[in-house]
Simulated assay, not measured.
Amino acid sequence: MSSLWPYVTSGIPDHLFERLPGIPLSKREVRLLIVSLLRLKRDSVLWDIGAGTGTVSVEAGLLCSQGKVIAVERDEDVAALIRRNCDRFGVTNVDVIEGSAPDCLKNLTHQPDCVCVEGGSPIKEILKTVWQHLQPQGRIVATAANFENLYAISEGLAELQVRNIEVVQSTINRLETRGNRQVFAAVDPIFVLSGEKLD
């Protein structure tokens, strides 16, 4: 448990994370959806591929107190940002791997029982490699910000014969103060796809 976020529930406010310009951050509401679809256990091993700011890794690290999170990020500065965000929240069970997926995934020693794919290309090759390592009854969750990625992920999951596939599009509006008025501002919609490996 972190003094910055001393709660057992997920949903850390976005502003509590350190950020870098241009580096994506999974918004709190989308993160809650991702975490719920991962169906984490206290001892889960999660691969977070394309971890970006590390928000999902931090949330999962806090939830999986006896487990392990492997955050994969190809950019050295962004990987350092993930480490700093883990330090901010006192998360010690996240290992940050600097490398490009899918190539760097072959050398990971902790086999996952859940995987989150938040970015990366070629996406279908990443999914295929992840599937080879995913434990039976494992969960896979992937996000897409556009129709091209949505199609590629959907096709990749179908080719792998992922079971119990769900597709959700988030539509989130947040109340914001602009000048002397309060308005609802839309958060960019994200598609979240999930499924499981039954054998």
Rank of each mutant, 00 (worst) to 15 (best):
M1Q: 12
M1T: 12
S3F: 09
L4R: 14
L4A: 12
L4E: 09
P13G: 11
H15E: 15
F17A: 05
R19D: 06
I23D: 08
P24I: 03
R28F: 03
L38W: 04
R42N: 11
W47M: 09
T53D: 08
G54T: 04
T55H: 04
L62M: 13
S65K: 15
Q66N: 15
R84E: 15
N85C: 15
C86S: 11
F89M: 12
V91L: 12
I97A: 00
E98S: 11
G99E: 02
G99F: 02
D103V: 09
D103Y: 06
D113I: 05
V115C: 13
C116Q: 00
C116I: 02
G120R: 02
P122Y: 08
I123L: 13
L134Y: 00
Q137W: 10
G138P: 09
R139F: 02
V141I: 04
T143K: 02
A145D: 09
E148I: 07
N149L: 07
Y151P: 06
A152P: 03
E155N: 14
T171C: 15
T171L: 15
T177N: 05
T177D: 04
R178C: 09
R178G: 07
N180K: 11
R181A: 14
F184H: 00
V187H: 05
D188H: 13
L193N: 01
